[in-house]
Design a binder for these strands. Structure first.
Lengths: 149, 149
DNA sequence: CTAATCTGTAACAGTGGATGTTACGGAATG
DNA sequence: CATTCCGTAACATCCACTGTTACAGATTAG
């Protein structure tokens, strides 16, 4: 395994909330669109709420809503909200410090890895949930579809 | 877990081979520097050989060598050699196709994810094992160290 | 030719993160 | 007070990754 599906599912959730700006949406409804268990959705929504991206309401008529306009939510903010880790990992065991390469390779790698991750994050910072919704709606129009759910 | 340590260890191995250009190095010796089991090293070296980055020799005096100059080996080539996957993953289960968001979200995400991964790969393509070796040796000099192993 | 060295790889155990599921308490509504 | 929905603990699976043992094959020294 390399990456989790948390970012993907969180973006699915947020796009769905963005497409229903007037209503609260329940975790069960969202789970129906994502095709998974409602608890999985609530766990992710909990992370998104901690990040201030959504609010919840208990009881009848309750559910979830975005706290702000979809265009204000960057994919980078979502990535951080769901605790996606770095695409790079260091050794599990510390390398041998009596070998020059073993002693210094991690410090050398940290710099390169940081540059690469910054480049990735810069791309994610340039995209928003609003753009995702646009993209989805555009594809929906192009296909001449009419389902909703 | 998010990423494996394969890229890190492969780069450790290649930097070690680059620092011993005159000799063949055994998997056992490398394992001593990485601080793991020789079979783990051989597995990775097998992938690196498939990618044409190293060659091996059996028997007494055998071991491993680089096939080319360290400056010709980009971190991107190594990343691909060790089969590191994408930093992004789609849903495990297909989303609900009767929901517009469920039907189109993956196509929308593929584009953004591809842009982000290209940015990451561009950074990795700009760094080489030769630069890593330089970085390690520079740190070694700065620390006034003299160990070797 | 034989012993020693080292690769190549199969096989298996253990670990840990991620996901899916059930269960149930708490909050809000009518 | 019954219903709805969140919040979260608890547990079961699953699966990639890592570590380890074992052994066959290749190569070389003597």
């Amino acid at each position: 395994m390399n990456a989790s599906t948390r970012l993907t599912i969180a973006l699915h959730i947020l796009t769905l909330l963005a497409s229903n700006p007037e209503e609260t949406v329940t975790s069960e409804y969202i789970a129906g669109s994502v095709n998974t268990n409602p608890v999985v959705i609530r766990r992710l929504l909990g992370l998104l709420r901690t990040a201030g991206l959504v609010v919840s309401q208990s009881g009848i008529g309750g559910g979830w809503r975005l706290t702000g306009p979809p265009d204000s939510i960057t994919l980078l903010a979502v990535r951080r909200a769901v605790n996606e880790g770095s695409p790079f990992n260091m050794h599990h065991q510390q390398p041998n410090p009596s070998c020059p390469v073993g002693r210094h390779i991690q410090n050398a790698l940290v710099e390169v890895y940081a540059r690469a991750e910054r480049a990735l994050e810069a791309e994610l910072a340039g995209a928003t949930v609003g753009q995702l919704l646009e993209s989805v709606q555009s594809r929906h129009r192009d296909a001449g579809e009419s389902n909703k759910g």
